[in-house]
């Protein structure tokens, strides 16, 4: 239990996927313009990461490991994530149109999100068991969402600020992301696994 709790803290704050490990920078910069879209993206990532990690972990333990096919790990995981996302989309559209509308375009976008693949690969590499993998995935996704929301909040205000001409747009966004990342370095070493 203690390990699970510390894992949650570690992967949200200390080892934040975006700000400390630099995974998923593309959506972090791409969909953080508005709070609304950032929320949608964050929820979709939490959803997909949890499911993807669950399935990839099972495949790794019950298929890849017994047959000594670890070298196929990356290819297999990409296949699984892509197929899974597609399926989730289809099912969701039928079962919960509201959720489907809410997640919208972000669901298919996540197929190519490196953070999702990273979570699946790291869960295996760290030797987590099933529950730990799931906690790891959800905590990482929550960390991602948090970073995205913080960024969206800042950017919504930056939009109204009198930014000097050459710094407008992506320049100020990248600088903001850097400062945010520096701020999160304060958590470094607070807890380790």
């Amino acid at each position: 239990m203690e390990k699970i709790l510390s894992m949650v803290f570690i992967f949200i704050f200390v080892e934040n996927f975006v700000l400390q490990r630099f995974f998923g920078i593309c959506p972090f910069l791409g969909v953080s313009r508005k709070m609304e879209t950032a929320t949608g993206m964050g929820m979709a990532v939490i959803f997909v990461m949890a499911i993807a990690t669950l399935v990839t972990w099972l495949v790794q333990i019950y298929i890849l490991d017994p047959f000594g096919l670890q070298y196929l790990q990356v290819v297999t995981f990409i296949l699984i994530i892509a197929g899974l996302v597609q399926m989730v989309e289809t099912v969701l559209r039928k079962i919960s149109p509201t959720l489907y509308q809410g997640l919208g375009i972000f669901l298919p976008l996540i197929t190519t999100n490196c953070a999702v693949l990273a979570v699946a690969l790291l869960a295996v590499r760290q030797g987590f068991n099933l529950v730990e993998s799931l906690v790891f995935a959800i905590a990482a996704a929550v960390g991602f969402t948090m970073a995205l929301l913080i960024m969206a909040g800042i950017r919504e205000r930056l939009e109204l600020a009198d930014t000097p001409g050459p710094m407008r747009g992506s320049a100020i966004t990248l600088i903001t992301a850097g400062i945010l990342s520096l701020a999160f370095m304060g958590f470094k070493g607070m807890l380790t696994l």
Partner: peptide
Amino acid sequence: IWSIVTLGGLGVLFGALL
């Protein structure tokens, strides 16, 4: 053979599920 069977099998499985 194993790698072909595994990956191919997973592909077919996901295809069928989809």
